[in-house]
């Protein structure tokens, strides 16, 4: 059911029945290593290109999710997923081996929540029984496409962020007695593209902050909820700079979210001593932390209601060279659990 202009309430409460989360070597040394289902020791993962390794991350995440849900791929109606690589080939190639009807989506690092919102909408409206959705990124594959070769010795400024190697996939299903204990999706707000004129590709958190603030504000306005409704509001990959800026922006709009309730996936993945500058980024940042870490925390009962806001910077290496500013987007999905 639509509320306001851009928000949905899912009155049939679609549920996340299982997740599959894979990661690379840097994630293995990170803070949340135990929340991953499968971790690889090197970036090649036994494949002969980074793009193939990227595909493998997705393949495995889907396989694990299906296994945990005790489903075969024939039972799944649709796959809604994407990544950062040109023409989202890693995801499409993984969809080839999965052989499930497929919607390829691109929302940069906001893809995870874009997919989850769409999947929930389809399930809620009786459009499907099971949908697999998620997003992925690979550090070296993204690095070589958006920046420089991986071994190039360029210095990154302290505002830069580290692209996560990983994939986070979830299976969304209709609510029934069997799944009453599973986390359910109750609402979503689709963001609009916002460009506040920043153009530094080494400071994406700063560029994405206004999009996140706008989507959070819209979500509260249209659903009639406020930050007190949620135990936690978590953003996808804003990093140190973006997070501080969003808090400031929301503050100026009269939304006073306490700092301890406002986390960022990009700041949760890695240890302090890992050289990631301002934090993690990439389509896998929100997907791995939400589907891996936060859903587990919800199952343990740490959180009951969370609002996940995944942010994406919709730039390409070409638009950067053509001196264009960075348009950004954010989508919010609310996940709740019965107590």
């Amino acid at each position: 059911m639509i509320v306001g202009k851009a928000s949905w309430f899912f009155e049939n409460e679609p549920v996340i029945i299982a997740t599959g989360v894979t990661g690379g070597p840097f994630e293995k040394n990170g803070k949340l290593a135990e929340d991953f289902d499968l971790l690889y020791d090197d970036l090649w993962m036994g494949e002969d290109s980074y793009e193939k390794a990227h595909r493998l991350l997705i393949d495995e995440a889907c396989r694990i999710a299906l296994e945990k849900a005790e489903l075969t791929k024939e039972q799944v109606n649709f796959m809604i997923a994407g990544d950062l690589i040109n023409q989202i080939t890693p995801t499409s190639f993984a969809a080839r081996s999965l052989a499930v009807p497929y919607f390829g989506i691109f929302g940069a690092c906001s893809t995870s929540m874009e997919g989850l919102a769409l999947a929930s909408f389809l399930i809620n409206g009786d459009g499907a029984d099971y949908i697999v959705t998620g997003s992925a990124s690979h550090n070296a594959a993204a690095e070589r496409q958006f920046r420089y070769p991986t071994e190039y010795g360029g210095q990154k400024p302290p505002t830069a962020q580290w692209t996560v190697t990983g994939a986070g996939y979830a299976i969304i299903a209709k609510q029934n007695e069997k799944y009453s204990e599973k986390p359910k999706i109750t609402a979503a707000t689709i963001g609009k593209v916002i460009d506040m004129g920043l153009s530094d590709p080494f400071n994406m958190g700063g560029a994405m902050a206004p999009a996140a603030a706008d989507t959070i504000e819209t979500h509260f306005e249209e659903t009639g909820r406020n930050h007190e409704y949620y135990d936690l509001i978590v953003t996808g990959d804003l990093g140190k700079i973006g997070r501080a800026t969003v808090l400031d922006l929301l503050h100026s709009k009269g939304i006073h979210i306490p700092e301890e309730k406002f986390l960022d996936c990009g700041l949760m993945l890695y240890k302090e001593e890992q050289p990631v500058q301002a934090g993690a980024s990439g389509a896998a940042s929100s997907a791995t932390v939400i589907y891996g870490h936060l859903l587990k925390q919800m199952n343990y009962g740490f959180y009951k209601k969370i609002l996940c806001v995944a942010t994406g910077a919709l730039l390409s290496p070409m638009t950067v060279q053509q001196k264009e500013t960075i348009p950004c987007i954010a989508h919010a999905v609310s996940i709740e659990k019965n107590s």
Binding site: M196, G197, N203, G206, D248
Partner: peptide, 23 residues
């Protein structure tokens, strides 16, 4: 959008954002 024709709103945001930017 080009870099050089920013709206006042964008300029204002740039200022706010720079306060948080790690130098």
């Amino acid at each position: 959008m080009g870099k050089n024709n920013k709206t006042p709103e964008q300029k204002q945001y740039e200022k706010l954002e720079q306060q948080h930017e790690t130098k």
